[in-house]
């Protein structure tokens, strides 16, 4: 495995950090094997890998939906399984298919999740509209029920929830899967702006093109192991698709 020790990242503490992270399920399947990665504030990390490689397991470990068998998934230095409520204040999550409350409007959904994240004090409902505008949802759809939204619009709502929460870390599980190129482009622009705000972004994806475009660091996960990890600078002039395919076919 190649490692990244550049860009002066050691000056700040990582926001998201996997330390010897291992997960073996009850049925004996080793989903994640000794994973080590770090995502610093203001940087985006893309995990590439085939289905079942362990990308979603990594995200679930950061969210403490499952406990690690060994190692730790840390958020702002706190192991997720030690204080799940604390780490959930610091992370936002956007899934492959953002499924919100379909009988609620975009504003109602945003309002609910904002309050749920602990933003009840001094929170104004107008903020929801501002955030929805920011993620590209026009005023005419703010009060429409979610069941009338397209997948792209729902994904924007999902990122709006992450924005309004104001969490320093964002976890995304294949967020552009199934989006048309325009919607995916807009989504990536949003992520870019969030990164520029100093948020740490960990994204699992199959989309090599988008990963290359957005990520500061890219890791390839194969059968639960991080087999490659390089920074954008290290990948300069390299064919990421070829590297990925080589790792997948076992040539590297």
């Amino acid at each position: 495995m190649e490692s990244d020790k550049n860009n002066g990242m050691s000056r700040t503490a990582p926001m998201l950090e996997a330390v010897n992270l291992t997960k073996r399920y009850d049925d004996g399947v080793l989903a994640l094997d000794d994973l080590n990665l770090s995502v610093f504030p203001g940087r985006a990390y893309a995990m590439l890998g085939a289905n079942g490689a362990g990308k979603t397991t990594t995200i679930n470990l950061f969210l403490n939906f499952i406990d690690p068998t060994e190692g730790e998934a840390r958020v702002a230095g706190v192991a997720s399984h030690r204080d799940p409520l604390l780490i959930r204040e610091k992370v936002s999550y956007v899934s492959e298919n953002v499924m919100l409350y379909m009988n609620f409007s975009a504003v109602q959904n945003l309002d609910f999740f904002a309050r749920l994240s602990g933003r009840s004090k001094g929170f104004r409902r107008d903020e929801c509209r501002d955030v929805l505008r920011r993620v590209g949802l026009e005023d005419d759809c703010h009060d429409r029920k979610l069941k009338t939204f397209s997948k792209g619009m729902r994904q924007k709502c999902g990122i709006a929830i992450a924005v309004i929460k104001g969490a320093p870390a964002i976890l995304l599980d294949e967020p552009t899967s199934g989006l048309d190129p325009k919607a995916a482009f807009e989504f990536m622009n949003l992520l870019d702006s969030l990164r520029a705000e100093g948020r740490a972004i960990l994204m699992s994806t199959h989309d090599i093109f988008r990963a290359r475009e957005i990520a500061d660091d890219i890791g390839i996960v194969k059968e639960g192991r991080l087999v490659m990890q390089r920074s954008r600078e290290e990948l300069e002039g390299e064919d990421l698709e070829k590297i990925y395919l080589d790792y997948m076919s076992g040539l590297s």
């Binding site: 969210l63 959930r88 953002v98 499924m99 749920l116 994240s117 929460k165």
Partner: peptide
């Protein structure tokens, strides 16, 4: 099934 449970529990909810 709808995915909202997971989203709710990405927040500090007991």
């Amino acid at each position: 099934e709808s995915g909202t449970l997971k989203l709710v529990f990405t927040n500090p909810v007991k």
